[in-house]
Amino acid sequence: MTMDKLLVSPNPHIHAPVSTKSLMRDVIIALIPAVICSFVFYGWREILVMAVSVASCVLLEWAITKYMLRKPSTIGDLSAVITGILLALNLPYTTPWWVVMIGAVVAIGVAKMTFGGIGQNIWNPALVGRVFLLVSFPTYMTTWGAPQGVVDAVSGPTPLGAIQEGLMQGASVQELTSAFNYKDLLFANLGGSAGEACALALLAGFVYLCCRKVIKPWITLSIFATVALVSLAFWAADPTRFTDPLFNLLTGGLVLGACFMATDYVTSPMTLWGGVIFGVGIGFLTMMIRYFGSYPEGVSFAILIMNSVVPLLNMWFHQKKFGRK
Protein backbone atom coordinates (compact mmCIF):
# COMPACT_ATOMS: atom_id res chain seq x y z
CA MET A 1 0.00 0.00 0.00
CA THR A 2 3.03 2.29 0.22
CA MET A 3 2.96 2.40 -3.59
CA ASP A 4 -0.16 4.50 -3.36
CA LYS A 5 1.89 7.46 -2.21
CA LEU A 6 4.48 7.18 -4.97
CA LEU A 7 3.03 8.21 -8.31
CA VAL A 8 5.49 8.49 -11.17
CA SER A 9 4.11 9.98 -14.34
CA PRO A 10 5.39 12.30 -17.09
CA ASN A 11 4.64 16.05 -17.00
CA PRO A 12 2.58 18.11 -17.13
CA HIS A 13 0.78 17.27 -13.93
CA ILE A 14 -2.79 18.44 -13.87
CA HIS A 15 -4.86 17.79 -10.83
CA ALA A 16 -8.40 16.65 -11.45
CA PRO A 17 -10.94 16.14 -8.70
CA VAL A 18 -11.71 12.68 -10.08
CA SER A 19 -11.22 9.76 -7.72
CA THR A 20 -12.37 6.17 -7.66
CA LYS A 21 -15.00 7.28 -5.19
CA SER A 22 -16.40 10.05 -7.38
CA LEU A 23 -16.53 7.75 -10.43
CA MET A 24 -18.29 5.05 -8.45
CA ARG A 25 -20.74 7.61 -7.09
CA ASP A 26 -21.63 8.51 -10.68
CA VAL A 27 -22.20 4.85 -11.52
CA ILE A 28 -24.52 4.54 -8.52
CA ILE A 29 -26.45 7.62 -9.66
CA ALA A 30 -26.71 6.07 -13.12
CA LEU A 31 -28.10 2.89 -11.62
CA ILE A 32 -30.83 4.69 -9.66
CA PRO A 33 -33.43 4.67 -12.50
CA ALA A 34 -32.94 0.92 -12.93
CA VAL A 35 -33.23 0.35 -9.18
CA ILE A 36 -36.41 2.42 -8.99
CA CYS A 37 -37.85 0.54 -11.98
CA SER A 38 -37.07 -2.81 -10.43
CA PHE A 39 -38.87 -1.66 -7.27
CA VAL A 40 -41.87 -0.43 -9.26
CA PHE A 41 -42.16 -3.72 -11.13
CA TYR A 42 -41.17 -6.22 -8.49
CA GLY A 43 -42.09 -4.60 -5.20
CA TRP A 44 -40.55 -4.73 -1.73
CA ARG A 45 -39.08 -8.15 -2.11
CA GLU A 46 -36.70 -6.78 -4.74
CA ILE A 47 -35.55 -4.07 -2.32
CA LEU A 48 -34.91 -6.79 0.26
CA VAL A 49 -32.75 -8.74 -2.21
CA MET A 50 -30.83 -5.58 -3.00
CA ALA A 51 -30.35 -4.65 0.66
CA VAL A 52 -29.04 -8.13 1.50
CA SER A 53 -26.75 -8.09 -1.51
CA VAL A 54 -25.26 -4.64 -0.89
CA ALA A 55 -24.92 -5.19 2.87
CA SER A 56 -23.17 -8.53 2.50
CA CYS A 57 -20.81 -7.26 -0.22
CA VAL A 58 -19.74 -4.25 1.85
CA LEU A 59 -19.48 -6.18 5.13
CA LEU A 60 -17.48 -8.96 3.52
CA GLU A 61 -15.04 -6.57 1.88
CA TRP A 62 -14.60 -4.76 5.19
CA ALA A 63 -14.03 -8.03 7.08
CA ILE A 64 -11.55 -9.38 4.52
CA THR A 65 -9.47 -6.21 4.43
CA LYS A 66 -9.50 -5.91 8.22
CA TYR A 67 -8.98 -9.47 9.39
CA MET A 68 -7.34 -11.31 6.49
CA LEU A 69 -5.34 -8.77 4.51
CA ARG A 70 -4.76 -6.40 7.46
CA LYS A 71 -4.76 -3.43 5.12
CA PRO A 72 -6.65 -0.12 5.18
CA SER A 73 -10.25 -0.82 4.31
CA THR A 74 -11.32 -0.19 0.71
CA ILE A 75 -15.07 -0.02 1.27
CA GLY A 76 -14.91 3.80 1.18
CA ASP A 77 -14.46 3.77 -2.60
CA LEU A 78 -18.05 2.48 -3.00
CA SER A 79 -17.05 -0.23 -5.49
CA ALA A 80 -18.47 -2.94 -3.22
CA VAL A 81 -21.80 -1.08 -3.15
CA ILE A 82 -21.92 -1.20 -6.96
CA THR A 83 -21.05 -4.88 -7.00
CA GLY A 84 -23.93 -5.43 -4.57
CA ILE A 85 -26.43 -3.44 -6.65
CA LEU A 86 -25.37 -5.11 -9.90
CA LEU A 87 -25.54 -8.55 -8.33
CA ALA A 88 -29.07 -7.86 -7.08
CA LEU A 89 -30.10 -6.54 -10.51
CA ASN A 90 -28.82 -9.81 -11.99
CA LEU A 91 -30.99 -12.04 -9.81
CA PRO A 92 -34.69 -12.84 -9.95
CA TYR A 93 -36.48 -10.99 -7.16
CA THR A 94 -37.68 -14.30 -5.73
CA THR A 95 -34.11 -15.40 -4.85
CA PRO A 96 -33.93 -16.50 -1.18
CA TRP A 97 -31.76 -14.26 1.01
CA TRP A 98 -29.16 -16.93 1.73
CA VAL A 99 -28.62 -17.56 -1.97
CA VAL A 100 -28.02 -13.83 -2.41
CA MET A 101 -25.46 -13.97 0.40
CA ILE A 102 -23.63 -16.89 -1.23
CA GLY A 103 -23.55 -14.86 -4.44
CA ALA A 104 -22.03 -11.93 -2.54
CA VAL A 105 -19.39 -14.20 -0.98
CA VAL A 106 -18.40 -15.50 -4.42
CA ALA A 107 -18.48 -12.03 -5.98
CA ILE A 108 -16.43 -10.22 -3.33
CA GLY A 109 -14.53 -13.07 -1.68
CA VAL A 110 -13.62 -15.17 -4.69
CA ALA A 111 -13.75 -12.91 -7.72
CA LYS A 112 -12.50 -9.68 -6.18
CA MET A 113 -10.50 -10.02 -2.95
CA THR A 114 -8.72 -13.27 -3.85
CA PHE A 115 -7.12 -11.46 -6.77
CA GLY A 116 -6.11 -8.53 -4.57
CA GLY A 117 -9.13 -6.26 -4.41
CA ILE A 118 -10.24 -3.42 -6.65
CA GLY A 119 -8.14 -2.96 -9.75
CA GLN A 120 -6.69 -6.46 -9.71
CA ASN A 121 -9.67 -8.65 -10.49
CA ILE A 122 -9.75 -10.34 -13.90
CA TRP A 123 -13.49 -10.89 -14.03
CA ASN A 124 -16.40 -8.65 -13.18
CA PRO A 125 -17.20 -9.65 -9.55
CA ALA A 126 -20.99 -9.28 -9.80
CA LEU A 127 -21.08 -11.44 -12.93
CA VAL A 128 -18.92 -14.14 -11.37
CA GLY A 129 -21.37 -14.18 -8.46
CA ARG A 130 -24.33 -14.44 -10.81
CA VAL A 131 -22.84 -17.17 -12.98
CA PHE A 132 -21.82 -19.15 -9.90
CA LEU A 133 -25.39 -18.96 -8.60
CA LEU A 134 -26.79 -19.83 -12.02
CA VAL A 135 -24.64 -22.96 -12.20
CA SER A 136 -25.11 -23.87 -8.53
CA PHE A 137 -28.79 -23.18 -7.94
CA PRO A 138 -30.51 -23.55 -11.32
CA THR A 139 -33.91 -23.96 -9.67
CA TYR A 140 -33.80 -20.67 -7.75
CA MET A 141 -32.09 -18.80 -10.54
CA THR A 142 -34.53 -19.69 -13.30
CA THR A 143 -37.78 -19.48 -11.35
CA TRP A 144 -38.84 -16.10 -12.61
CA GLY A 145 -41.66 -14.66 -10.59
CA ALA A 146 -44.11 -12.44 -12.37
CA PRO A 147 -43.65 -8.74 -11.79
CA GLN A 148 -45.92 -7.89 -8.88
CA GLY A 149 -45.27 -4.30 -8.07
CA VAL A 150 -47.67 -1.44 -8.46
CA VAL A 151 -48.17 -2.01 -12.20
CA ASP A 152 -50.33 -4.63 -13.84
CA ALA A 153 -48.12 -7.10 -15.56
CA VAL A 154 -47.95 -10.44 -17.30
CA SER A 155 -46.28 -13.43 -15.73
CA GLY A 156 -44.24 -16.21 -17.17
CA PRO A 157 -40.73 -17.20 -18.11
CA THR A 158 -38.23 -14.79 -19.62
CA PRO A 159 -38.81 -14.10 -23.30
CA LEU A 160 -35.57 -15.84 -24.26
CA GLY A 161 -36.42 -18.84 -22.09
CA ALA A 162 -39.87 -19.08 -23.66
CA ILE A 163 -38.40 -18.99 -27.17
CA GLN A 164 -35.92 -21.76 -26.46
CA GLU A 165 -38.59 -23.90 -24.82
CA GLY A 166 -40.97 -23.31 -27.74
CA LEU A 167 -38.34 -24.09 -30.37
CA MET A 168 -37.68 -27.42 -28.72
CA GLN A 169 -41.36 -28.23 -29.00
CA GLY A 170 -41.22 -27.47 -32.71
CA ALA A 171 -42.95 -24.09 -32.82
CA SER A 172 -41.65 -21.42 -35.18
CA VAL A 173 -40.06 -18.21 -33.96
CA GLN A 174 -42.74 -16.01 -35.54
CA GLU A 175 -45.53 -17.55 -33.49
CA LEU A 176 -43.41 -17.32 -30.37
CA THR A 177 -42.25 -13.72 -30.71
CA SER A 178 -45.75 -12.56 -31.58
CA ALA A 179 -46.57 -13.19 -27.91
CA PHE A 180 -44.24 -10.33 -26.97
CA ASN A 181 -44.86 -6.70 -27.63
CA TYR A 182 -41.72 -4.63 -28.26
CA LYS A 183 -43.15 -1.77 -26.29
CA ASP A 184 -43.45 -4.14 -23.32
CA LEU A 185 -39.83 -5.18 -23.77
CA LEU A 186 -38.69 -1.59 -23.69
CA PHE A 187 -40.83 -0.57 -20.74
CA ALA A 188 -40.79 -3.90 -18.98
CA ASN A 189 -43.77 -6.01 -18.28
CA LEU A 190 -41.94 -9.27 -18.19
CA GLY A 191 -40.55 -11.88 -15.89
CA GLY A 192 -36.80 -11.93 -15.51
CA SER A 193 -33.88 -10.71 -13.47
CA ALA A 194 -34.60 -7.47 -11.66
CA GLY A 195 -32.24 -5.53 -13.90
CA GLU A 196 -33.89 -6.79 -17.05
CA ALA A 197 -37.06 -5.04 -15.95
CA CYS A 198 -36.76 -1.87 -17.92
CA ALA A 199 -34.36 -1.36 -20.81
CA LEU A 200 -35.17 2.34 -20.98
CA ALA A 201 -34.09 2.98 -17.37
CA LEU A 202 -30.77 1.27 -18.01
CA LEU A 203 -30.23 3.25 -21.21
CA ALA A 204 -30.95 6.46 -19.29
CA GLY A 205 -28.21 5.51 -16.84
CA PHE A 206 -25.87 4.72 -19.73
CA VAL A 207 -26.47 8.11 -21.34
CA TYR A 208 -25.81 9.80 -17.99
CA LEU A 209 -22.49 7.94 -17.61
CA CYS A 210 -21.44 8.90 -21.14
CA CYS A 211 -22.37 12.56 -20.63
CA ARG A 212 -20.40 12.66 -17.39
CA LYS A 213 -17.52 11.00 -19.31
CA VAL A 214 -17.36 8.26 -16.71
CA ILE A 215 -17.34 5.60 -19.42
CA LYS A 216 -16.61 5.67 -23.13
CA PRO A 217 -19.53 4.45 -25.23
CA TRP A 218 -17.39 2.33 -27.64
CA ILE A 219 -17.72 -0.97 -25.84
CA THR A 220 -21.48 -0.73 -25.35
CA LEU A 221 -22.14 0.48 -28.88
CA SER A 222 -20.01 -2.23 -30.46
CA ILE A 223 -21.87 -4.88 -28.43
CA PHE A 224 -25.24 -3.54 -29.62
CA ALA A 225 -24.02 -3.27 -33.23
CA THR A 226 -22.60 -6.80 -33.26
CA VAL A 227 -25.72 -8.31 -31.72
CA ALA A 228 -27.85 -6.46 -34.27
CA LEU A 229 -25.70 -7.50 -37.24
CA VAL A 230 -25.26 -11.14 -36.23
CA SER A 231 -28.96 -11.60 -35.49
CA LEU A 232 -29.89 -9.75 -38.69
CA ALA A 233 -27.78 -12.17 -40.72
CA PHE A 234 -29.29 -15.26 -39.10
CA TRP A 235 -32.81 -13.85 -39.08
CA ALA A 236 -32.61 -12.93 -42.77
CA ALA A 237 -31.41 -16.45 -43.55
CA ASP A 238 -34.13 -18.27 -41.63
CA PRO A 239 -36.80 -16.27 -39.80
CA THR A 240 -38.52 -19.42 -38.56
CA ARG A 241 -35.55 -20.55 -36.49
CA PHE A 242 -33.86 -17.34 -35.42
CA THR A 243 -35.23 -14.35 -33.54
CA ASP A 244 -35.08 -10.87 -35.04
CA PRO A 245 -32.51 -8.17 -34.16
CA LEU A 246 -34.82 -5.89 -32.16
CA PHE A 247 -36.01 -8.78 -30.02
CA ASN A 248 -32.40 -9.73 -29.30
CA LEU A 249 -31.40 -6.20 -28.42
CA LEU A 250 -34.24 -5.70 -25.95
CA THR A 251 -34.48 -9.04 -24.20
CA GLY A 252 -32.44 -10.68 -21.51
CA GLY A 253 -29.63 -8.97 -19.71
CA LEU A 254 -28.11 -7.51 -22.87
CA VAL A 255 -28.76 -3.85 -22.05
CA LEU A 256 -27.72 -4.30 -18.42
CA GLY A 257 -24.61 -6.26 -19.39
CA ALA A 258 -23.56 -3.97 -22.22
CA CYS A 259 -24.13 -0.72 -20.31
CA PHE A 260 -22.95 -1.57 -16.81
CA MET A 261 -21.09 -4.88 -16.71
CA ALA A 262 -18.92 -4.82 -19.83
CA THR A 263 -17.86 -1.23 -19.21
CA ASP A 264 -16.38 -1.95 -15.78
CA TYR A 265 -13.01 -0.15 -15.71
CA VAL A 266 -10.96 -2.94 -14.27
CA THR A 267 -12.13 -5.71 -16.53
CA SER A 268 -12.37 -3.94 -19.90
CA PRO A 269 -9.56 -3.01 -22.34
CA MET A 270 -7.92 0.39 -22.02
CA THR A 271 -7.80 1.56 -25.63
CA LEU A 272 -10.44 2.39 -28.22
CA TRP A 273 -9.73 -0.51 -30.59
CA GLY A 274 -9.21 -2.92 -27.74
CA GLY A 275 -12.65 -1.91 -26.47
CA VAL A 276 -14.27 -2.31 -29.88
CA ILE A 277 -12.88 -5.81 -30.33
CA PHE A 278 -13.91 -6.63 -26.76
CA GLY A 279 -17.46 -5.48 -27.55
CA VAL A 280 -17.61 -7.34 -30.86
CA GLY A 281 -16.47 -10.50 -29.07
CA ILE A 282 -19.15 -10.12 -26.40
CA GLY A 283 -21.88 -9.50 -28.97
CA PHE A 284 -20.82 -12.43 -31.15
CA LEU A 285 -20.51 -14.89 -28.24
CA THR A 286 -23.84 -13.73 -26.80
CA MET A 287 -25.63 -14.45 -30.07
CA MET A 288 -23.89 -17.80 -30.51
CA ILE A 289 -24.97 -18.87 -27.01
CA ARG A 290 -28.52 -17.60 -27.54
CA TYR A 291 -28.93 -19.34 -30.91
CA PHE A 292 -26.95 -22.52 -30.41
CA GLY A 293 -26.17 -22.89 -26.68
CA SER A 294 -28.02 -24.89 -24.09
CA TYR A 295 -28.68 -21.78 -21.96
CA PRO A 296 -31.31 -19.38 -23.31
CA GLU A 297 -29.22 -16.35 -22.34
CA GLY A 298 -25.49 -15.85 -22.76
CA VAL A 299 -24.58 -12.24 -22.00
CA SER A 300 -22.97 -13.02 -18.66
CA PHE A 301 -20.94 -15.92 -20.04
CA ALA A 302 -19.89 -13.84 -23.05
CA ILE A 303 -18.69 -10.97 -20.86
CA LEU A 304 -16.75 -13.30 -18.55
CA ILE A 305 -15.10 -15.05 -21.51
CA MET A 306 -14.08 -11.72 -23.04
CA ASN A 307 -12.88 -10.48 -19.60
CA SER A 308 -10.33 -13.28 -19.71
CA VAL A 309 -8.75 -12.00 -22.94
CA VAL A 310 -8.56 -8.37 -21.80
CA PRO A 311 -4.86 -8.63 -20.82
CA LEU A 312 -4.17 -9.87 -24.35
CA LEU A 313 -6.16 -7.02 -25.91
CA ASN A 314 -4.25 -4.54 -23.75
CA MET A 315 -1.01 -6.04 -25.03
CA TRP A 316 -2.02 -5.87 -28.69
CA PHE A 317 -3.53 -2.40 -28.61
CA HIS A 318 -1.10 -0.08 -26.86
CA GLN A 319 -1.93 3.44 -26.02
CA LYS A 320 0.09 5.61 -28.40
CA LYS A 321 2.51 7.71 -26.40
CA PHE A 322 2.25 11.47 -26.85
CA GLY A 323 4.53 12.65 -29.64
CA ARG A 324 5.29 9.20 -31.01
CA LYS A 325 4.45 8.32 -34.58
Binding site: I102, V110, F132, V135, S136, F137, P138
Partner: peptide
Amino acid sequence: HDGMLAFVMAPGAFL
Protein backbone atom coordinates in the same frame (compact mmCIF):
# COMPACT_ATOMS: atom_id res chain seq x y z
CA HIS B 1 -32.07 -29.41 -0.26
CA ASP B 2 -29.62 -29.22 -3.12
CA GLY B 3 -25.99 -28.36 -2.57
CA MET B 4 -24.08 -25.82 -4.62
CA LEU B 5 -23.90 -27.76 -7.86
CA ALA B 6 -20.94 -25.77 -9.15
CA PHE B 7 -18.67 -27.56 -6.68
CA VAL B 8 -19.50 -30.94 -8.20
CA MET B 9 -18.57 -29.62 -11.62
CA ALA B 10 -15.20 -28.64 -13.03
CA PRO B 11 -15.13 -24.97 -11.91
CA GLY B 12 -15.66 -26.04 -8.30
CA ALA B 13 -12.76 -28.48 -8.59
CA PHE B 14 -10.41 -25.70 -9.64
CA LEU B 15 -11.73 -23.32 -6.96
